[in-house]
């Protein structure tokens, strides 16, 4: 058993195509990859919203002035 479909390279490479693991599962892998990508946006959005909310709640005019002075 080999995840790439070959247990030996003693073959004619002229007859060999794809050699990545789990051939035949490309669509499932794409679904998994897309879920990872979309999940990333969701998690990033949630984290950013919390960060902005915390910043608003801890706002102090004097500190903001200092930040402006620092440019």
């Amino acid at each position: 058993m080999s995840t790439i479909g070959y247990e030996s390279w003693a073959v004619d490479l002229g007859t060999v195509g794809a050699v990545y693991p789990f051939q035949g599962w490309e669509v499932a892998m794409t679904v998994l990859g897309v879920l990872f990508w979309l999940g990333w946006h969701r998690m990033q959005f949630d984290a950013e919203s919390k960060e902005l909310e915390d910043a608003v709640n801890s706002f102090k005019g004097s500190e903001a002035t200092q930040a402006i002075d620092r440019y």
Binding site: M1, S2, T3, I4, Y6, E7, S8, W9, A10, P21
Partner: peptide, 12 residues
């Protein structure tokens, strides 16, 4: 795990 069973080398 992901490459389980793949040949590590072209040599016999």
């Amino acid at each position: 795990f992901v490459l389980w069973g793949a040949p590590s080398s072209p040599y016999d």
